[in-house]
Write a protein that binds this DNA or RNA. Sequence first.
RNA 1: UGCCGGAUGGUGUAACGGUAGCACAGCAGUCUCUGGAACUGUUUGUCUAGGUUCGAAUCCUAGUCCGGCAGCCA
Length: 622
Amino acid sequence: MTTSSNNTPAEAAGPATPSDFIRDIVAADLASGKHRQIVTRFPPEPNGFLHIGHAKSICLNFGLAVENGGRCNLRMDDTNPTKEEAAYVESIMRDVAWLVADWAEPNYSLKTKGALPQAQEQDGKPDYFMGPAEAVPAAELGNPRSTLVEPFYASDYFEPLYAFAVRLIEAGKAFVCDLSAEDMETYRGAPDRPGQDSPFRERSIPENLDLFARMRAGEFPNGTRTLRAKIDMASPNIWLRDPVLYRIRHAAHHHAGGDWCIYPMYDFAHCLSDYIEGITHSICTLEFEVHRPLYDWILENLDLPRPLPRQIEFAKLIPSYMIVSKRKLIQLVQDGVVDGWDDPRLPTISGLRRRGVPARALRAFAYNIGVTKYKSLTDIAVLDFAIREDLNRSAQRRLAVLRPLKVVITNLPEDHAEDLAAVNNPEDPEAGTRSIPFSRELFIEQEDFREVPPPKYFRLKPGGEVRLKYAYIIRCDEVVKDAEGNVVELRCTADLESKRGGATADRKVKGTIHWVSTRNSVPAIIRLYDRLFTIPEPDGEDGDFRRHLNPGSLEVVSGRLEPSLAGAHPTDRFQFERLGYFVLDEDSTPDHLVFNRTITLRDSWAKVAGGADGARAQLKRI
RNA sequence: UGCCGGAUGGUGUAACGGUAGCACAGCAGUCUCUGGAACUGUUUGUCUAGGUUCGAAUCCUAGUCCGGCAGCCA
């Protein structure tokens, strides 16, 4: 138990192994001896970036492998050349590797670069198998340019798939149909009305074989013929009404190249790809539930020599305040509403990563929301919680001021300089301390001073006292304003005995605020991200989701940071005390620092404040 | 209304005929050199109606409501 707990996505967030109906099925299959090892797969279509919904699926499939000592294949479900691009394959590889890093690498399988399924024969039955590459170094898993490995590709199975189709024709279970798309729709009938047999349904086997070969040879234009399964046009299940197995598409394929002009449909390719890879449990989303009889039909009618995979459906993630629909996501990116697929406001995995969300937090989230067949809206506060919980324990604290207001400590000499010890992480004693320079002139947060304070405001106010974190208690003596009446400087006196260890160190003052020394602080651009949408279900039916964009989803400020932050590393995450968690952005350079806000700290003051202040704070956090 | 699926607090999930539990959110409090964290307490729930049973969220019957399915998309 101790060793396996290291592999648990949620670690401290709950019991070592989650329980749900899918894990129950897997456990039962292992217990009954139906399978000795379980094999799952994550099968994205390379036509867009992975998002938080895929993260749920990845965590489920890889989690099953991790928990049961099985493996999980990354497979490109690439059977439609007109919609897919190799560029997406690269982002998918990177995102998956990032998500499973330090967790499921030993169970993550890719295949040997360029390998194709092995043709085998058992009892005169053609069979094909595609196994994983052995002992892949973890670094290769996320490397799209690896010369050793690559993802599994459904398009690598086109040849076996063709052979299986021929076999179906030979068994009299598939036929070539000349119906146009429109006619086919008419013949299909409706959910409550049976369809009619295609006039081409009773073609002879030799004729079907000949026609199918000529389809492959490119003799017919797009859309003129299809290969269809011969099942039952009167079936109450639409997907059993002689579904299309192959269509003609004179188009090159991003992975298979220009060899093909007929391409298998999802229903034909998916079950057989699962079979070829030896998948035991093929987990997909609810909308494929009605396809399951077809999934089983194809496999069962091919008379295959090895155990068949089992399809199991679960409800996909619908996160509140986010859009996850591929079409809408593309629209936001193309219209420049956001700044690319990895914009930190997007629920894409690359966006979340750039925002500073740790993979571990995403896994904990996926784990916490559970797996069911009930289609539900998941409160994104659950994700927020997972992020804060992770970062609270792991992120070092720093002092940073977002909107600086100058403070002069009048009872200190001009050249006063001292270094103060600051705790790096109160949640982690091992993290140690650092020193921060303190001087006569400081910046504090504009929000931490109110000339006319609201009730229960316990930060700085005229004549009032506040503690400067790690430093002195100061009193505000004078408020300096510019011509327009804006507060531009505060003149304060410090209680010089109030520093930690001093005579008056234990004096109680209501508030403690953060600060930086004007002289020693470094400037930085800080991007304050917030929810992209203002309503819980922007992805709902009504198409006009852009009406609900949050105009304040990105605010850029010029802040000042304590000097130690100048040496920040791109993957470091920090808590800027009292503000939130921040990560260095990839746009950052040593002399032009850029930080992204991952998430704010919980802010109970925003709620207490009420009135104008509270309303503004609430709005900012929507 | 053809087929398939689903319904447990505000939200999400557990319970596998035997005390309806957990998490998030909320509320109240303790503590605090982060209005953070931590800790304590707490409000709110089995879709409806019958039935079986000593006992039903769970089994049966009948309803109600919700979701999915009619691409040569996946």
